[in-house]
Simulated scan of single mutants.
Amino acid sequence: MLRSMATLLAARGRQGRQGRHGQWDTDRGEVQLTLPPSLPATLGCDAVGVPARHGFRLMSRLPGNGCVFADSEWWWWIVPAGSDTELRWPLPACYATDACVPDRRPRLIHRPDSTSPYTPPIPLYLMVCQLTGVAPAWTGPGLESRL
């Protein structure tokens, strides 16, 4: 687990895939999370990942979960494209543009009952902040720093 976190954090400073919050790549390559055909991503598709140790807690506390993928080290929630706009996702969360994540063979572990593949990003963001002990913060016109 520590090696994986160190790899992700170190990779943010290296040249590689360009995301909205910096650059990262992995030694194992990347894979784009594939949604079930019956759940179209009409708003585009990004993913928010957290270390697996937080996965069950987040899933049980969120008011609604869209598609959730997991591997042995990370859980990934599908969110609409641009869900990082004006938000600072706290570490150790990882925002993956286009739902391209490290290739550790993630698999779909939760499929929503609705016709939308998305987890609402604001409740997810607030829960990630709560789990990590970080106060919610965002930027934007007229907003300097924190809530």
Results as ranks from 00 to 15, higher is better:
residue 16 G to T: 13
residue 15 Q to F: 06
residue 14 R to P: 10
residue 35 L to M: 06
residue 24 W to C: 10
residue 73 E to F: 09
residue 53 R to P: 06
residue 62 L to F: 00
residue 92 P to T: 04
residue 13 G to E: 07
residue 96 A to Q: 04
residue 15 Q to G: 14
residue 53 R to Q: 13
residue 53 R to M: 14
residue 58 L to Q: 00
residue 111 R to N: 09
residue 77 W to L: 12
residue 53 R to D: 12
residue 65 N to R: 09
residue 108 L to C: 07
residue 97 T to M: 06
residue 111 R to C: 14
residue 44 G to T: 12
residue 77 W to D: 09
residue 117 P to A: 09
residue 13 G to K: 05
residue 7 T to D: 11
residue 144 E to W: 11
residue 76 W to Q: 02
residue 59 M to W: 09
residue 119 T to Q: 02
residue 132 T to P: 01
residue 100 C to A: 15
residue 136 P to N: 01
residue 28 R to K: 15
residue 30 E to D: 03
residue 68 V to A: 04
residue 22 G to F: 00
residue 46 D to N: 12
residue 26 T to N: 11
residue 4 S to W: 05
residue 105 R to G: 08
residue 38 S to G: 08
residue 4 S to A: 15
residue 72 S to G: 15
residue 104 R to I: 04
residue 41 A to C: 05
residue 38 S to Q: 15
residue 35 L to C: 08
residue 29 G to L: 10
residue 66 G to A: 08
residue 64 G to A: 10
residue 73 E to C: 10
residue 126 L to N: 05
residue 60 S to N: 07
residue 146 R to A: 10
residue 70 A to L: 07
residue 44 G to C: 11
residue 30 E to Y: 07
residue 57 R to N: 08
residue 64 G to M: 10
residue 102 P to K: 07
residue 9 L to A: 11
residue 52 A to E: 14
residue 31 V to P: 04
residue 66 G to R: 02
residue 91 L to M: 04
residue 118 Y to R: 04
residue 10 A to Y: 11
residue 143 L to G: 14
residue 127 M to I: 04
residue 68 V to Y: 00
residue 24 W to M: 15
residue 47 A to W: 03
residue 50 V to K: 00
residue 102 P to E: 10
residue 55 G to I: 03
residue 80 P to F: 00
residue 110 H to M: 09
residue 57 R to P: 00
residue 10 A to L: 15
residue 124 L to D: 03
residue 134 V to D: 03
residue 84 D to P: 02
residue 141 P to V: 14
residue 69 F to H: 00
residue 21 H to F: 07
residue 82 G to M: 10
residue 93 A to L: 03
residue 38 S to W: 13
residue 72 S to I: 10
residue 141 P to S: 12
residue 30 E to Q: 12
residue 34 T to G: 03
residue 102 P to Y: 07
residue 71 D to K: 11
residue 126 L to H: 06
residue 8 L to A: 12
residue 104 R to N: 14
residue 9 L to D: 03
residue 56 F to G: 08
residue 41 A to N: 05
residue 96 A to G: 09
residue 122 I to R: 13
residue 63 P to W: 02
residue 94 C to Q: 12
residue 138 W to A: 13
residue 37 P to C: 11
residue 36 P to C: 05
residue 60 S to W: 03
residue 81 A to H: 10
residue 77 W to M: 10
residue 84 D to R: 02
residue 3 R to G: 15
residue 101 V to N: 02
residue 58 L to V: 06
residue 108 L to Q: 07
residue 119 T to V: 08
residue 142 G to M: 11
residue 92 P to N: 02
residue 118 Y to Q: 03
residue 28 R to W: 06
residue 72 S to F: 12
residue 114 S to A: 12
residue 69 F to K: 06
residue 98 D to A: 15
residue 97 T to D: 08
residue 122 I to Y: 07
residue 118 Y to W: 00
residue 137 A to D: 05
residue 138 W to L: 13
residue 78 I to G: 01
residue 143 L to D: 13
residue 71 D to W: 11
residue 17 R to S: 03
residue 70 A to D: 02
residue 36 P to Q: 04
residue 86 E to P: 04
residue 72 S to E: 14
residue 6 A to M: 13
residue 18 Q to W: 10
residue 52 A to P: 06
residue 23 Q to S: 11
residue 15 Q to K: 15
residue 51 P to L: 05
residue 63 P to M: 09
residue 48 V to P: 01
